[in-house]
Nucleic acid binder design. Sequence first.
DNA 1: GACTGGCACTCGAGCACTATGAGTGCCAAG
DNA 2: CTTGGCACTCATAGTGCTCGAGTGCCAGTC
Lengths: 338, 338
Amino acid sequence: MEERKLAVLRAIVDDYVQTHEPVGSKALVDRHSLGVSSATIRNDMSALEEEGYLSAPHTSAGRIPTDKGYRLFVDKLNSIKPMSAPERKAIHTFLDQAVDLDDVMNRTVRLLSQLTKQVALVQYPSLGRSFVRHVELVNSGNSKLLLILIADTGRIEQRTVDLLQSVSEDFLHDLRTRLNVALDGQLFTEVPERLIGLGDNFQPDQRSAVNTVIATILDAVVTHSEERVVVGGTSNLARVGEDFTATVGPVLEALEEHVVLLRLFGEAAAPDALTVRIGHENSVEELQRASVVTVGYGSGDQALATIGILGPTRMDYAGSIGAVRAVARYVGQILQDK
Amino acid sequence: MEERKLAVLRAIVDDYVQTHEPVGSKALVDRHSLGVSSATIRNDMSALEEEGYLSAPHTSAGRIPTDKGYRLFVDKLNSIKPMSAPERKAIHTFLDQAVDLDDVMNRTVRLLSQLTKQVALVQYPSLGRSFVRHVELVNSGNSKLLLILIADTGRIEQRTVDLLQSVSEDFLHDLRTRLNVALDGQLFTEVPERLIGLGDNFQPDQRSAVNTVIATILDAVVTHSEERVVVGGTSNLARVGEDFTATVGPVLEALEEHVVLLRLFGEAAAPDALTVRIGHENSVEELQRASVVTVGYGSGDQALATIGILGPTRMDYAGSIGAVRAVARYVGQILQDK
DNA sequence: GACTGGCACTCGAGCACTATGAGTGCCAAG
DNA sequence: CTTGGCACTCATAGTGCTCGAGTGCCAGTC
């Protein structure tokens, strides 16, 4: 691809992102110093349209980038806008105020949506990649227990366990101790095998209670390990200005379905592994007119989970990518300190 | 107020809620069997407009209710739509599946928004009206502690405490025991006075650590006792069909400000104390074109917190009130069982 | 006195029509 | 390969017009 045609594509994307209106050859040479005349640009644009990077809404309008055009634009993106010093400062101070994990997640989602002016998506640290810090059992009367699993990331899962029989404090103490000996410091994925045979240490008449607790733990660890997601900044969808019911409505609906969001995040790879999905590249049907920028966060070599933003395909990719990266990096640091 | 004029107002509200279009005298007699001619209705409508219950967008359009009109309509509402048996059944089964408090809150918000087709608002049980079930301290290495407060409602607050000195497991055990002796079963509002003098039981060199922990507890209990709110169903704002940026945008923004939401809920009174705020009756400026229906939930004689819905002033008040009531009642029950 | 039918009047919605101009494609010349 | 020029296209905005829903008023009726 010749350099100039790429430059033309870049210019068109820039202008379109800014103005939200089809851009024509004349306006392009006026606003950018491309060094050639509008006629030349027209030829290039014609070629770009031929190749599928641009499309024209109608004959006498300018052109807008296609999904394929945005894709090329992103792939050939040479400068991700870095956060300015005050912006970085603001990120730090805002996130540092968080008192607990919930607060970190909520603040992150607000931060991201404000920085990018898009919808922000934040996934809680996956249990599958966290370590058990502590298991707590609290007797809550009438044969019920409160089971609490605490991860090193600060994530907490709680369950009510109905034992169907009252148990002694001694038994509870014993079980709690054994659970913590077996599980503390272990990866959550290893919890199932660590619990094998735990019941053997108890009296036969206590086995059923122990097994109920174990079953609840396994359910919490296996079934619900990924599913917590926070969404914020939906009001930014207001600014897109497009036909609401046709475009934004379905998107909002999709965002309410957390299952969809998890599919959106897909597999979290290494931290900093950044993914941009543009328009139809999203498998989720309602989101085929939107773009999603996601990146893993976490301190180790594998990401704890994913955060990202969602907006119209005509978004400021350079800026969004920069913001998502910066926030993800800092969230990773924060969680390490907790 | 004569009976027929009230009936006319009711009919207009009904029609307008359904069609979203100004309703004229002719259409009104066609759709409702009012027993009089359109001319008579016109006189009544004219009078109602005079009194401020109706307004006409322009001369040759029909009329729409004013906020004052809705207010009268709601005050004179004679039948709150009760939930149908299958609906009640659905509420029960859906909420019963919840595994923990977060899940209950999330399910509640989804349920409410689906039942009413409006935006749903759910406040976590206020710490101020809950009892301490358990306090847990977990050593997380490098002189840091994880402090966990568990309420009888299942609500959990966590904080990281930096002691600036490493502490022994014995000390931790001692502190944990004393905290639980002092606090378990107490109202959260009484926590501050229960903690007075707790430090006296410890060695002077341990006092600073104890005080740090106590300060963190007080901060969690006092400062952040009310502030957790869940919002859902924002996609329902899509259906209002009005000018988005003018009407819906500000509303979405206001909803992101949880502080605003808390103001919206105001003082939670007794459970079942239902409040309807219509249009300008809302003190929050951005929501002056919306109506809010809230009700307290909880099992005792004082509500634990508030849930509600928010929608355009032209909403189905009878249905919404019924749904909010029913859900609130069941949430109260669920939390009692946990 | 309350209600009704009839009638003149108002005024926005919707349609046809036109002018405007941004933008394109193509071509011949540099 | 680039450029200026030119004919052509077509959405948009503005204008004028008709149509009809809806109102207000009044005289007549029960």
